[in-house]
Every structure is written in C-alpha cells, then in structure tokens.
Design a protein around this nucleic acid. Structure first.
Length: 220
DNA sequence: GAGCAATATCGTCACCCCTG
DNA sequence: CAGGGGTGACGATATTGCTC
C-alpha cells in the first residue's frame, strides 16, 4: 500500500516511465465520466484499464544488466537460508530519506540508479543485488490432486475445485511474500547506492573547493 | 490511556508474460 | 495455446507515533 498513498513522497520508481501519474489520469477520467462522477467512486475495473503493466523487477534488472557490459545476468540463487544473506547490502539509511524533498528526488531517480548497483556489483564495489528462489515448499499435508479422470460425482468435482483453489491461493500467497521480499531488497540496494553516491559527491565537491583555492590567484 | 492519522503488512484478485 | 509464475492494485487489518 505504501507505494501509492497520496501523502507519501515515495513513488514507484518505474511508474514514472510506464504509466505516468496514475492519480492524475484517474482524476481526469472521473471528471469526464458522468456515472463515476455521480457516485464519486471510480470503478476498480476502470482503474485497472488505466493502469499499464510494468515489467517485473527481475526483467528490469536483467535488461539493465544486459545494457551494462560485464555485468552478469541475475539468476535464481539456490539459497536455502532465511534472513539477510551475508553478501547483501544492509547499510543503514535513515528512513527520513523518503520524506524529505531530497528523498523524493532520490526515489524518482531510483530506476535509473539501479544500473549503478550492477556496475558496482560487477566491480566489487558493493554487494550484488540478489534474487533468491522461493524457499518455501508446499506444507506437509497438501496432497496432490487426483487425476480428473478418476472423479465421478459432482461432489467430488466440487471438492476438487475447492482444493485446487486453495492450492492456488496458497501458492499465490507465498509468491506474494517472495515478491515483496525481493522488492525490499531491490529498494535496499538502491538506497545503499544512493548513500555511496552521496558520500562520493561530497568528496568531489570538497576536492573541487580545494583545487579552486590552490588555483585561484592571490589578490593582495 | 483513548482517539486518531499515518504507515506497514498481508491475502487476494487480475493481468501479463514466459515456457513447454 | 494452456498453465503457472510474477507482480500491481486493492481492501482489510495491524502497528506506530502523536496529541489531548
């Protein structure tokens, strides 16, 4: 939910490039649509139509990696451990970074900055952004479906349908968890890179000032 | 401590895209 | 082309921080 709350200065980094300002579009359509206007509520289906699909994180990262020479493609890691892997950046970044005007700028630029993550990772500058394969297996007790040919009565078919639905929901639940975990890692990676670049920038500015002092003629 | 707003987390649905 | 995985959107609920 935190991606699209109005008062939070933290827009989806990709949203900029793919769908523009959703709220604005929705508002525009609401104004022109009399039925929606009368109710003051935009039909969720209409909202969905407005939304243009964005590529997955994995796809974005892989595309970026192919654009950056020497950067390996992201592959599913066969990691079995939960928690923060030792080689993933865990640099602490103040959360206020989201809420300041600077934070807004940073976040709007995150999509572009992700390339830096890969460059840095490739050069050993910072840990690689990783995508782990889902680690959760089906819980014990989940029995695989009987073949449809073996079902006879409507009741059996109904049970089968229910069971299939529950299985699908369970899988989707796990997928959503995994997806969110990846998203967090993705953001963490970008935050780390921002922190590194801020330090770098500060150093360069200081260096520039020093050089200016040395080179400027003395006016006595 | 109660009440409230802001923010975070979770489950689900709908949809797109990839793979066999 | 069907099936399944990934993920944005949404609503419900939980948590947190602030004010009185």
């Amino acid at each position: 939910m935190w991606w699209h709350q109005h008062n939070l200065c933290f827009r989806h980094p990709i949203e900029e490039d793919y769908s523009g300002d959703l709220e604005e579009k929705v508002a525009t359509i609401a104004e022109t649509d009399e039925s929606a206007e009368s109710e003051g509520v935009i039909d969720s289906r209409k909202r969905r139509e407005i939304l243009s699909r964005r590529p997955s994180y994995r796809k974005i990262l892989n595309e970026l990696s192919s654009d950056v020479p020497g950067v390996p493609k992201i592959e599913e890691e066969k990691s079995e451990e939960e928690g923060t892997p030792p080689n993933i950046a865990t640099m602490a970044v103040p959360t206020s970074i989201y809420q300041t005007s600077t934070g807004q700028y940073i976040v709007n630029c995150l999509y572009k900055l992700v390339a830096f993550c890969f460059i840095a990772a490739a050069t050993g500058d910072m840990p690689t952004y990783q995508i782990r394969a889902p680690t959760t297996a089906l819980p014990q007790g989940v029995v695989m479906a009987a073949s449809p040919g073996s079902l006879h009565s409507p009741q059996q078919l109904a049970e089968e349908a229910t069971r299939k639905r529950e299985l699908r929901l369970m899988k989707n639940r796990e997928a959503a968890k995994e997806c969110r975990r990846r998203k967090k890692e993705y953001v963490k990676c970008l935050e780390s890179r921002v922190a590194v670049l801020e330090v770098q920038n500060k150093k360069l500015i200081e260096e520039l000032e020093t050089l200016k002092d040395i080179c400027s003629p003395k006016t006595d």
